[in-house]
Amino acid sequence: MTLRDAGECIAALPKKEHDAPEWQAAMEALILVAENGGPVIKARIGVMRALNRHYVPAFNPKGKEPHWRRPKLKRDQ
């Protein structure tokens, strides 16, 4: 997909979604990359953030338990 294709895709969005701040930031990043020849990864990050704006990662406070204690030996079982 080219930068032009990405811009046309964003421009074709419904008005309500097009006016979302995430999509506005993605458009700004696309314009900056296209005009100034900057790194394309910035435009990609902007578009990916806009696409995934409703995703909320689940937080597991317990996480992985640390294994700081000594392992049990077979003879101790």
Results as ranks from 00 to 15, higher is better:
Asp19Ala: 03
Pro71Val: 04
Lys64Arg: 01
Ala50Leu: 05
Glu22Gly: 06
Pro21Ser: 08
Glu28Tyr: 08
Ala12Phe: 01
Ala50Lys: 05
Gly37Arg: 09
Leu73Ile: 02
His67Arg: 11
Lys15Asp: 10
Val33His: 07
Val56Met: 07
Met1Cys: 08
Leu32Thr: 11
Cys9Val: 01
Ala50Gln: 04
Asn52Ile: 04
Asn36Trp: 13
Asn36Arg: 15
Gly7Asn: 10
Ala43Lys: 13
Leu32Cys: 09
Leu73Glu: 13
Gly37Asn: 09
Arg53Ala: 13
Arg53Asn: 11
Ala34Thr: 15
Met27Ala: 15
Pro21Cys: 06
Lys72Arg: 12
Gly46Cys: 11
Gly37Tyr: 07
Leu32Lys: 14
Val33Leu: 07
Ile41Val: 14
His18Asp: 14
Arg70Gly: 01
Asp5Gly: 06
Ala43His: 13
Ile45Val: 13
Arg49Trp: 02
Asn60Met: 01
His18Asn: 12
Gln77Leu: 14
Pro39Met: 13
Lys16Gln: 11
Met27Asp: 15
Glu17His: 01
Val33Trp: 06
Ala11Asn: 08
Met48Tyr: 04
Ile31Glu: 02
Lys74Pro: 03
Lys74Val: 12
Ala20Gln: 10
Gly37Ala: 08
Trp23Gln: 12
Pro66Val: 06
Arg69Leu: 09
Leu51His: 10
Ala12Pro: 00
Tyr55Glu: 03
Leu51Arg: 15
Lys72Ser: 09
His18Arg: 15
His67Ile: 05
His67Pro: 01
Ala26Tyr: 05
Ala43Asp: 13
Glu35Ser: 11
Glu65Gly: 04
Asn60Phe: 00
Ala20Gly: 01
Ala58His: 14
Arg70Asp: 04
Arg49Gly: 03
Arg49Lys: 15
Pro66Met: 03
Glu35His: 09
Pro71Asp: 05
Gly37Glu: 09
Gly7Phe: 08
His67Lys: 11
Met1His: 12
Asp19Tyr: 00
Glu35Asp: 12
Met48Pro: 00
Val47Gln: 02
Pro39Lys: 14
Val56Gln: 13
Gly63Thr: 03
Ala12Arg: 04
Pro39Asn: 15
Lys16Tyr: 05
Arg70His: 02
Trp68Thr: 03
Asp19Trp: 00
Ala34Trp: 13
Lys74Thr: 10
Gln77Met: 12
Gly37Leu: 07
Tyr55Phe: 11
Tyr55His: 07
Cys9Met: 07
Glu35Trp: 05
Gly37Val: 08
Phe59His: 05
Leu3Glu: 04
Lys64Ser: 00
Leu13Glu: 08
Asp76Thr: 03
His54Arg: 13
Arg44Pro: 00
Asp19Arg: 01
Gln24Gly: 09
Pro39Tyr: 11
Ala25Gln: 12
Ala25Gly: 04
Glu65His: 09
Asp5Leu: 09
Pro66Thr: 03
Asp5Val: 06
Glu65Val: 14
Leu73Asp: 10
Pro21Ile: 05
His54Glu: 15
Pro61Asp: 01
Arg69Gly: 09
